[in-house]
Simulated assay, not measured.
Amino acid sequence: MDAGELRELLSLDGLRLLDELPPAESKEDVVTAVAGLRRQGHPPALVAAVLSQRKLRARARAKFGEFAERMLFTEAGLEQATRLQVAALHAGRFADAGATRVADLGCGIGADALAFASLGLDVVAVDRDEVTAAIAGFNLAPFSNATVRQGEAEGFDLAGFDGVYLDPARRSGSRRLNDAADWSPSLDVAFGLARATASGGVKLGPGIDRELIPADCEAQWVSVDREVVELGAWFGAAAREGVRRSALVLGKHGAARLDGAADSEDEPPGGLGEYLYEPDGAVIRARLIGDLARSLDARMLHPTIAYVTADRLMPTPFAQAFRITATLALDIRSLKREFAARGIGSLEIKKRGVDVDPAALRTKLGLRGDAAATLILTRVGERRLALLAERV
């Protein structure tokens, strides 16, 4: 979005149309909406801006729920924005640490600042991009305890703040920046700013090189509905004492947390039990698989593979459980015969530790029938196995 498109949206006609126009469910709906708005005499630029924003609002419901209907977005801003439930937990960190005034540097469209302000924290949200800062200002307008400024994170005066939160820009246009020194602010600067107040937090991508994570922070990987969405590096009072590795798993069960003082040691591998657990991605990223296995009275399936196995079932929010119904050789012809005999026509294929293309395998199996199953391709010791399973 450029400044001209934003001006169209923020006009009286733009805001009115944005609120009145129903979401487009199909391309035909879009064509009909465009034709209708043009017949009413609205200029093409305004029509394009409003329809683009309606599309973004519809996508934003996954992150912001009903609040999306009163917010403005950019394509990049929505993609990078923190989910509302995760932002609320960020805000809780600062509140629990006793913070009262937080600087949100690199605020984007203002998702985290919204949560900070909603919890009663005074927040100053800063973004270097003029259009993005203006959108954050619109989104934060209902909160008298929130202020938005355009500016750089580097050199921001933190005097009077007892909390600071940063989300370094990891893209330049559509290009992802792989070198942390090229981020804005750079990773070293971001960590330095996070240490400059009593409580600090830095939002990072979950796949960041672990060698870049400082030893003096609590590193928490967060997953939402089994998708790992971020790594939070927490400093000072925002970090919990004695915790250096954490997996926060959010889902229908609510919120569950697995904490460790360091990367946990794996359990020794053992024989395949009746149950196999696939740890949540946040647990894997945090390298807490060993602690999870011990909590389940389980063992590793293989020293280098993130599956654990047990002889009895124990419920856990930190892994998906499967009951093994058959142990088969990883051979196309024998698998094809087995599935035909069982009438399996719907097959979920999961794999770890084997070089197999699930899509190609599915085609070769020629599945037919009404039964459904899960096929787990992995290794036990030096053997490659195909485990027929059902989700618990």
Results as ranks from 00 to 15, higher is better:
A237K: 15
A237N: 15
A237Q: 15
A237S: 15
A238S: 15
E241I: 06
G242E: 14
V243Q: 02
R244P: 04
S246G: 13
A247M: 10
A247L: 07
V249A: 08
V249M: 09
L250A: 14
G251A: 11
K252F: 11
H253N: 13
H253V: 11
G254E: 09
A255V: 15
A255E: 15
A256Y: 11
A256I: 13
R257I: 13
R257H: 13
R257P: 09
L258V: 01
D259P: 04
G260D: 06
A262C: 11
A262R: 13
A262I: 07
A262L: 10
S264K: 03
E265P: 10
E265I: 07
E265W: 03
D266F: 05
D266K: 10
P268G: 10
P268C: 08
P269G: 09
G270L: 06
G271I: 08
G271R: 11
L272T: 10
G273H: 10
G273Y: 07
E274C: 10
L276N: 08
L276I: 11
D280T: 03
D280V: 03
A282P: 01
A282Y: 02
A282E: 06
V283T: 00
V283R: 03
V283N: 05
V283F: 01
I284S: 08
R285H: 01
R285L: 02
A286Q: 00
R287S: 05
R287T: 00
L292I: 01
L292D: 05
L292P: 05
L292W: 03
L292C: 06
